[in-house]
Design a protein around this nucleic acid. Sequence first.
DNA 1: ATTAATGTTCAGAA
DNA 2: TTTCTGAACATTAA
Length: 279
Amino acid sequence: MPELPEVETMRRGVLGIIGGKVVKAERTPCPKKPIVISPRIDRLSKRLVGKTIKSVDRLGKRVVVRFETGDRLIFEPRMTGLVLISDPPTTEHLRFSLKLKNCPIKKLLYWDRRGLGNVTLLTDKQYQTKLTDGKLGPDALVVSEEEFPQRFGKTRRDVKVAMLDQSIVLGIGNLYASEILHLAGVHPQTRCDLINKKRWSLIYKHMLDVFALAIEYEGSTLSDGTYRNALNKSGGYQNEHRVYDREGEKCPSCKQSPIIRIVQAQRATFYCKKCQTKR
DNA sequence: ATTAATGTTCAGAA
DNA sequence: TTTCTGAACATTAA
C-alpha cells in the first residue's frame, strides 16, 4: 500500500547508497512470474555497472535513484513492493538487486510479494517527459496552496475519489485520503466544484500535517504486515489512524458518532457523519 | 471455496 | 467531453 509517507520512508532509509558505485545489477531468481523490469535486465545492467549514484529522490509514490549519467532507476512499489537495504521479509519474493561499492551500503534490494510493482531505468530525457510532464500532477509536498485547489478545477467528481487521481496531485492514496478529509471536516462525497476556497485550504493544510506526522512515524503498516521500512521494520502510524479501517468505532473528534464505511470507486472510504459535512 | 485488500491502467459504457 | 465501471496484474489471509 505504499503511499507518500511510506515511499518517503523508503527513500530516507536508502540515502546511504549515495556515492556508491554499481558492481552488479541483477534480476533475482523468483520462481513465480517475474515483475516488469525495463529495459531488459541485461541492457539495464550494462548501463548501470560502474556508474555512481548521485541522489535518491521521491516523486509521488516512486523512489528515484539518479546516476552520474543522468539515468534514473525508478522503483514503483504499487501494492506490496519494498525498497530495502537489509534482508527481505521472504527470500522467494526478492525481485531485483544492486550490488554496490564505495559506500556503507553494499546492496539495494527490491522485494515485492504480489509483484504488481516495477523497476524502470529511464534516461534523463525520458524521465522529464514521462514523469514530470502533464500526465502526472505535482508532488503533494511540493504543490502550493494556490495551485492545489486549481488543480482539482471544477470537476464534479467526489473529492475523495479525485484526491486519489495521480494526474491531479501525486502521493495521496486510499488510506491517507480518508484521514485527511476527516481532519479537514469535509465529507468524502462532496463534489469538488462545490468546495470553497476556505475548505480547500483546510484540506491542503491537513494533507501536509498528516503526511509530515506519518513520515515521522515511518508510515503505516496495516494488519497484513506487508509494509516495512528499508531496514525491514514496521511503521507506526497505523496506531494514529483516526478513521481508516475503524468502522463502528467512535469518532475520535466528536466521540459520539460511529465511523462509517462506504465504497467509492470500488475503494473503501471511512468517515464520520457528524464531523464531516458537504459545506 | 469465496472475498477483500493498500495501486495503477486500460477498455468500454453511460 | 466527462465520469463511471469492471477487469487485469499476483498473493495471501480471513
